[in-house]
Computed example of a mutant assay.
Amino acid sequence: MGIRLAEAVDRESVEAIVKAAYDPWTPVIGVEPLPLTADYAELIEAGLVYVLENERTIDALIVLRPEDDVLLVENVAVNPDRQGRGLGRRLLTFAEFRARSLGLPAVRLYTNEKMISNIGLYESLGYRETDRAGIDDRSVVHMRKRL
């Protein structure tokens, strides 16, 4: 199992995993989660998407966007039939590695305030809430982890 930069040929797999992972949240939050609205062809072209694959099958992905003083985890998605195996945690550990390699002292992310299980997971991994705000008619919790 390895993590690599996504390529154009991975777009359909990436989009399918994002859809499968986030669709169940739509009725919970009342609107489509932001990852469902992203342009993955553009993100892949920009070199922001990493995939975790097992024997050439993509099981999960992470979108990482460097900012001035932090690495933004824009999206983490795990194929639902592969959830519960630590793949999301592995990708978040990879994000920390990338941040350090870029000389960035922290990683940040945001999640919808109604995604309570995600907030708990991020807190268990050392992320702390920094703010609550609105993004495109969604209420989100901003979180940060100092490295």
Rank of each mutant, 00 (worst) to 15 (best):
G2A: 02
R4H: 02
R4I: 02
A6V: 03
A6G: 04
A8K: 15
A8C: 08
V9W: 05
D10Y: 12
E12A: 15
E12D: 14
S13V: 11
S13H: 14
V14S: 06
E15P: 08
A16F: 12
A16D: 15
K19P: 04
A20Y: 07
A21P: 08
A21L: 05
A21T: 03
D23P: 06
P24R: 12
W25T: 13
W25A: 14
T26I: 11
P27I: 10
P27L: 10
V28F: 12
V28Q: 14
I29F: 10
I29L: 13
G30C: 13
E32Y: 11
E32A: 14
L36G: 08
L36M: 15
L36N: 09
T37N: 08
T37L: 14
A38F: 13
A38I: 06
Y40E: 06
Y40I: 10
A41M: 02
A41S: 12
E45R: 09
A46H: 04
A46V: 06
G47I: 07
G47H: 03
L48S: 05
E53T: 06
N54S: 15
R56K: 13
R56Q: 11
I58K: 10
D59L: 04
A60H: 04
L61S: 06
V63L: 11
L64N: 01
P66L: 01
D69R: 01
D69V: 03
D69Q: 04
L72H: 00
V73S: 03
E74A: 13
N75H: 06
V76I: 15
V78K: 07
N79C: 09
N79R: 09
P80R: 12
D81F: 15
Q83G: 09
G84F: 08
L87D: 06
R90Q: 08
R90P: 05
L91C: 03
L92T: 00
T93D: 07
F94A: 02
A95I: 00
A95E: 00
A95M: 03
A95Y: 03
E96A: 00
F97W: 00
F97R: 01
A99M: 00
A99K: 00
L102K: 02
L102P: 01
L102A: 06
V107Y: 02
V107C: 05
L109T: 04
Y110V: 02
E113L: 10
K114N: 13
K114L: 15
M115E: 07
G120S: 10
G120A: 12
G120Q: 11
Y122L: 08
Y122N: 07
E123C: 07
E123G: 08
S124V: 04
G126M: 03
G126A: 05
G126H: 00
G126N: 02
Y127K: 12
Y127L: 12
Y127F: 15
R132K: 07
A133V: 10
G134C: 03
G134V: 12
D137G: 12
S139I: 14
S139G: 13
V140C: 08
V141K: 03
H142L: 15
M143S: 13
R146G: 09
